[in-house]
Design a protein around this nucleic acid. Structure first.
Lengths: 146, 146
DNA sequence: TTGCATTCGGTACCTAGGTACAGGCTTACC
DNA sequence: GGTAAGCCTGTACCTAGGTACCGAATGCAA
């Protein structure tokens, strides 16, 4: 047999196949995303082969905008075999969060466009007529500009 | 008058009027956004009165999506009285960055919608037909939200 | 002059998601 | 059995934009 594979994959093998850093595996273990794997007699980690697939899932969830804490929770409720319309519900919530972020970015984009259109030439001493910079109150801060 | 105001504003006064933390003033000084102010005989900072306006400008630029490093540069080139169509150019560049982020978020949103529409019920063992989760390859290493 | 509020400098800590050592042990191959 | 590669734990560091805490010194009004 070319691959010994007795008892599981070593950290380097998992890391390479999943396309992540070796350190990341231990980090995920600390964060509770990966269960503690079994060990060789000398203490080296031996991962079950489906760990690579699990890492792929984790990366996919991250790309969907879930934080590692959220991914850990999703994996956990999945493992517990809850009735769990959980993933769907969380996806819906996440979509709302993304919509909000897009709205924020769109507002910022609008303000930047004003700056460009007005031909602003300085943050502090802009000479353009009707300079929009003093009226930038996009986000939370209190309402009225001076 | 209640405020002596001889020589400038104290850190607490500037912080309160600008709506920022006192520590933030020292942080901005370290970062080069605020010039080192003069000092009292005992070493307390005494800011020129326009510091409050400058902080307002900094906060506005941040709301436009500029990092503190970028704001520092913009202020610096402004101070040097360069010909500087600089602000406009940077605003145009920033708009392109924002458009890219919106595009990323839109792609993520689409993928999440697929997950919802397919009625996925688990990250690892989804039972829905034609589950989209295994095909999530939105953006390889990039595509960060937040 | 007393007494309290404020500020000083320096340092450590926070979130999020990792990455990079250092020094020592284990495993694999020949 | 020798040797090189890989792995172990623990700790520190990275980005960005701040915030918090400390003991000591200063500012200001009564």
């Amino acid at each position: 047999m070319a691959s010994p594979n007795k008892g599981g994959l070593r950290t380097g093998e998992v890391a390479e196949q999943a396309g992540v850093n070796v350190q990341t595996l231990r980090y995920y273990e600390r964060r509770g995303l990966l269960a503690e794997p079994s060990r060789s007699l000398g203490g080296h980690r031996l991962y079950p082969p489906d760990t690579v697939a699990l890492l792929t899932v984790i990366k996919a969830a991250q790309r969907l905008g879930f934080t590692l804490d959220e991914v850990a929770e999703l994996l956990d409720t999945g493992r517990r075999r809850h009735p769990a319309p959980d993933l769907r519900q969380r996806a819906v919530t996440k979509i709302a969060e993304i919509d909000q972020r897009i709205a924020d970015l769109t507002a910022i984009r609008g303000a930047l466009t004003e700056v460009v259109d007005a031909r602003c030439d300085s943050l502090t001493d802009c000479t353009c007529t009707d300079c929009p910079i003093p009226f930038l109150t996009i986000g939370h801060p209190d309402g009225e500009p001076t």
